[in-house]
Design a protein around this nucleic acid. Structure first.
Lengths: 158, 158
DNA sequence: ATGTATATGGTCAGTAAAGGTCAAACATGC
DNA sequence: GCATGTTTGACCTTTACTGACCATATACAT
């Protein structure tokens, strides 16, 4: 059930939570040896699981003494989070990205897990099957529903 | 008269009842081999016999190390709620009726007010404007979304 | 300073391993 | 014969992972 990527993700998150600072430094090659995988696997994990949408920031330096530094970003205020969601224009809206926002929102207690799951429902493409519309239109609709629902949920915060 | 689908259904239900958890994980291809059938047969069984209306919920992950997870929903506390939802079949589904259910649900503390507002958003017809579909189709979609979302909440009754 | 070797990390296309969809064929009961 | 439910296969999408090739920083000798 658990993929290599999942294990590496867990390992890095554990490192972060054990660290007294906001970031951890790793060596790409070393880490890849630890998990018996290709170095580029590390990049895959970083880009699929430590994206800004999910509340992380990655910086790195090449060459001798090179490193990769992973920051856990400051938890967002619900207002900021909502603004970020609203700024997703329907052009760059896609369910995967939206899902990442949900994950961050629930991790940072802006919305509850149940609310996250409810919102996730709107993003499940298969519910929209059978409609005589193209995928882009489905995404546009999802985007509208998604944003409207989040606004509703957070309404009382203002 | 037992069909292949019936056997697969039985098999999965047995798995569920033997499991100490409230879900089971399967691999689609493996299962299809076990029953000497096409992989898509499994999807047919899942959609015809393990729908939310029947008290089940299915989630899955594609790609390497993918899986299908089948949840058995707990009917106890939520039986009445479930029955109400079942009445909202897409034929006679209408947003007004659904809204009334929501109201009752939040009064009876099955869902929070925030959740009720979230779900209400799905029922707002004007969000669906611009789609080249008839009202009936919009309602069918709303019904699907609504039911899937409710099932999501019920999943947590354990 | 300059050049070169060494040590990092980055990118991207390709492959593999899942699961999803849909329409058409088939079967069964009325 | 028709309606309904079952089964299949061709084609699609997503996710995980690797390797060849690329870019950049440091170390060190000259």
């Amino acid at each position: 059930m658990f993929t290599l990527s999942d294990s590496i993700e867990d390992y890095l998150k554990k490192l972060l939570s054990l660290s007294s600072r906001y970031y951890v430094d790793i060596r790409r090659y070393e880490l890849s040896r630890k998990f018996f995988c290709a170095p580029s696997q590390i990049n895959y994990v970083l880009s699929s699981r430590f994206s800004p949408e999910r509340g992380y920031l990655v910086e790195s330096r090449r060459g001798g003494k090179g490193y990769i530094r992973i920051y856990r970003l400051e938890p967002l205020q619900s207002r900021t989070w909502m603004e970020m969601v609203e700024q997703l224009t329907s052009a760059d809206f896609n369910p995967v990205k939206a899902m990442q926002f949900l994950k961050r929102g629930s991790e940072e207690k802006i919305i509850t897990q149940r609310e996250a799951r409810l919102l996730e429902t709107m993003l499940k493409d298969d519910l929209y099957n059978g409609l005589p519309v193209m995928k882009a239109q489905v995404h546009a609709l999802q985007s509208k529903l998604f944003k409207a629902a989040i606004a509703e949920v957070l309404k009382e915060c203002y």
